[in-house]
Design a protein around this nucleic acid. Sequence first.
DNA 1: GTTATATTTGAACATATGTTCATATACTAA
DNA 2: TTAGTATATGAACATATGTTCAAATATAAC
Lengths: 126, 126
Amino acid sequence: MADTKRIQNNSVMDACNVRVVHLDKVSNAKAKEIPGADLERMASTYKMLGDPTRLKLLLALSENEMCVCDLAAFTGLTESAMSHQLRRLKDLSIVKRRREGQILYYSLVDSHVSDLLKIGLEHVHD
Amino acid sequence: MADTKRIQNNSVMDACNVRVVHLDKVSNAKAKEIPGADLERMASTYKMLGDPTRLKLLLALSENEMCVCDLAAFTGLTESAMSHQLRRLKDLSIVKRRREGQILYYSLVDSHVSDLLKIGLEHVHD
DNA sequence: GTTATATTTGAACATATGTTCATATACTAA
DNA sequence: TTAGTATATGAACATATGTTCAAATATAAC
C-alpha cells in the first residue's frame, strides 16, 4: 500500500488522485478483472441485442432462418437497412447465411444469442 | 391473403408495396411476435450491458456491492460519470442502493443481469 | 454554525449509431 | 444479351450516447 495517504476514516487517496473507500473491494474486483479485449467482445454482442429492431429480427431468427426481404417485411425496415444490420451481425459472428439462387437465408450461428434471448424473455415481466 | 399480387415465382407484393418471399415464415414470426413495450424493455436491459465500461462495473457488482467512488476507481471513470451510469441502471431497476452514512452502496437488484453475464462469460472464447 | 467527504444533477460537447438514398453487385430467366 | 429480382455498399444525415465540467445536495465531524 505504498503511495497512499489516509485522509479521513477509511478513505484513501492514491498517487494519481483516485479516491478509494474500500481498497479490499477494489483490489478484489481488479483481481477478477476480465481482459479488455474480452470485455469489448462481450459488450459488442450484448449491444447487438440492445436495439429494439435488431432484437426483433434476432428473435425471429431464433425460430427460423429467413431471407433479407422477409426480415425487412417483418420488422418494417427497408431491405437496405436490414442488409446493413445483418452485415454487422455477420461481422460479429452472430449470424451466418447460405445462398439459394438469388436469395440469402440468414440464421443464428450458435446458441449463444438464443440463450441470452431466453433469459431476457424469462424476465420481461418482472 | 387479400390484397396481394404474385410477381415472380414465390415472391408476393402486398398492398403497401412490401416484398415478401416466404409469407409463411413472416406470418409465423408475426404470430410469435412480442409486444412493442416488452421488446423495448428487453432491448434497454441488453443495451446496458452493451457498453464496455458499464459491463465492467456490472461484472464487479455481480461479485460485491460497491460504492460510487470505488466503482469509479475500478473502472477509471470520474465519480460524476459513474453516478450518471448508476442512475440509468437504477431507473431500469437493474441496480439498487443502500446508504451507510455518506456512502451509497450499489448492488444488482436480482439475478437477471448476473444470468446474462454468466452466459456471456461462457461464450467469450468461442 | 463551518468544513470536509460522498454523491447527484444539468447543460454542453464530441462521438457513435441507425436509417435513408443512390448506386453497385449477384444471380436468374428469357 | 437484356431485363428483372435479391442483396450489398458507401456517403450523408439526424438522433442517441457517454463523458466532462461546474454547481448542487446530503451526511458527518468539529
